[in-house]
Design a protein around this nucleic acid. Structure first.
Length: 482
RNA sequence: CGGGGUGUGGCGCAGUCCGGUAGCGCGCCUGCUUUGGGAGCAGGAGGUCCCGGGUUCGAAUCCCGGCGCCCCGACCA
């Protein structure tokens, strides 16, 4: 049955589709430890591409990488009141080492603000030491109750940037800058449109002054927080006595930011672009941008075709394309097509005896459309062109999907109907009161994803809170979320 | 932690009601024939039937007690 080989469709059961896709494409597997996942080579390759792009963007904005320890003295976490309250319930604690009970338990980092700012206190003395712009790539542990591969696991990989500045304005600028970096990455590399904006107090990072986020809409119309950037103010610098001497000779506490994205982005990628055949990976993030599938019957054909296919491979590689020749024996070409489609490879080239004779290859696009016969002569140019177009088209179609799943200026009734139908994002007025927010969440499961930045706001600012009718203080975007 | 479900080769399941010494599909290995959209045939490997105890001549199956996992509700990048 061909059907037994097909994935559950997105329409039939989105989360079954998601899980099956990950298994089929061998992106990740469940670990023997509850809530943890093993990232398999195919999945890790995507993360590596993400890391490469992001790391360069961090360097380009003046940051350096460093590494801080996995273990944090439990007392450190407790120094910032709101922070400990936020994270204590979900920390893993090490109480024994070397067979003996530790004098002070060690927390496995759920995030590294505390240990990093403890170190910054030693490193920063003068305004001349500022700004201090550091990033680290690390694993963190948060003892989650319910986990999903890539989206929420007990241990996950991420990067966390931690900066210290002389003024509040500089810290604010940094927090906003890095939010912009994330947005650029998500749009240009992941082809994933995001809304940027500010989080309400209830969704703010524990210990931050303000939290900004990038929010993306998945194909099941649930929102996903894809990245966050925090202006920490002086909350941690006061807790850890991170002080510096100003040019005027005064002593002041530094202003901090922190910002992060995680392997959750791989889950976002799956849910934004994936289709019923499997993963769809934007060319810029694909491990293999092109796979070449040779087609042959006889041994003679095999030799000729493989030689031609390898020539094509070398030429494409030389032009900067990540290309793989799938020369596996004993597997029919069709089986290879399905496998590579499931893994999301953007472009496939089929090379058979007829192509070799004609000096051409057949190009198939992961996103569909007719196969196309191309002359080998100008192949590299055509391949780059096809990748660029696909990269742009993926963004455009995701954007169109999001816009068609968004309603603006909603009344309470429209809001309820939209949310009830899992139809996507709702833009509407908000009175700014936590009670209203909590009430809405309890009754509808929808939360305020962001108070959107200006460019995402509706042309006309709402006047009234969609829920309670009081004057609106900000337009808000609601959705059910992951 | 409450409600529901489920544990049987790598994966998905049947067998359990009514006890008789474990089977199917996929995958895997070998060989031959195949290869322009998921190959066919033949042969083969692989299982403490979640764990412990009990009943019985005999337990995957019945009884008692544990444990794991999944789904739904209270936390979250």
């Amino acid at each position: 049955m061909a059907d037994s080989k097909a994935l559950t469709t997105r329409a039939a059961d989105f989360s079954a589709w998601y899980n099956e896709l990950i298994a089929r494409a061998q992106l990740a597997d469940y670990s023997p430890v509850r809530g943890c996942m093993v990232i398999r080579p195919n999945g890790y390759a995507i993360w590596e591409q993400m890391q490469r792009a992001l790391d360069q963007m961090f360097k380009d904005t003046g940051h350096q990488n460093a590494y801080f320890p996995l273990f944090i003295p439990q007392s450190f976490l407790a120094r910032e009141a709101e922070h400990v309250e936020g994270f204590a319930p979900e920390t893993a604690v090490v109480t024994h080492g070397g067979g003996k009970e530790l004098e002070e338990p060690l927390v496995v980092r759920p995030t590294s603000e505390t240990i990093i700012y403890a170190m910054y206190a030693k490193w920063i003395q003068s305004y001349r030491d500022l700004p201090l712009l550091i990033n680290q790539w690390a694993n963190v542990v948060r003892w989650e109750m319910r986990t999903r591969l890539f989206l929420r696991t007990t241990e996950f990989l991420w990067q966390e940037g931690h900066t210290a500045h002389a003024t509040e304005a500089e810290a604010e600028e940094e927090a906003r800058r890095m939010l912009g970096v994330y947005r650029t990455f998500m749009e240009d590399w992941m082809s994933m449109p995001v809304l940027t904006g500010r989080k309400t107090d209830s969704e703010r990072f524990a210990g931050a002054l303000r939290t900004y986020s990038c929010e993306a809409l998945m194909q099941d119309n649930k929102a996903l927080q894809a990245g966050t950037s925090h202006n920490l103010g002086q909350n941690f610098s006061r807790a850890f006595e991170v002080t510096f001497q100003t040019a005027a000779g005064d002593l002041d506490h530094v202003w901090n930011t922190s910002w992060g994205v995680s392997t959750r982005l791989v889950g976002a990628l799956i849910m934004v672009h994936g289709d019923d055949a499997g993963l769809v990976c934007p060319p810029r993030l694909a491990q293999y941008q092109v796979v070449i599938v040779p087609i042959h019957r006889t041994d003679d054909e095999r030799a000729t075709v493989l030689e031609a296919a390898d020539r094509v491979r070398r030429e494409l590689a030389a032009s900067g394309v990540r290309v793989h020749l799938d020369a596996r024996d004993g597997m029919k070409p069709g089986a290879k097509y399905y496998e590579w489609e499931g893994r999301g490879v953007p472009l496939r080239l089929e090379v058979g005896p007829r192509d070799v004779a004609a000096g051409s290859v057949v190009l198939a696009r992961r996103t569909g459309g007719k196969k196309e016969t191309l002359a080998i002569a100008d192949l590299p140019a055509r391949v780059h062109e096809a990748m660029d177009r696909m990269q742009a088209e993926l963004l455009a179609s995701a954007l169109a999907r999001r816009d068609s799943a968004s309603i603006r200026g909603a009344t309470k009734e429209q809001f309820l109907a939209h949310v009830e139908a899992n139809a996507g994002l709702v833009y509407a007025g908000f009175c700014g009161r936590g009670e209203c927010e909590a009430d809405i969440k309890e009754q509808t499961k929808a939360t305020i994803r962001v108070l959107p930045d200006e460019e995402f706001r509706s042309p006309e600012a709402p006047e009234r809170c969609m829920w309670c009718g009081r004057p609106s203080v900000a337009e808000a975007v609601w959705a059910k979320a992951y």
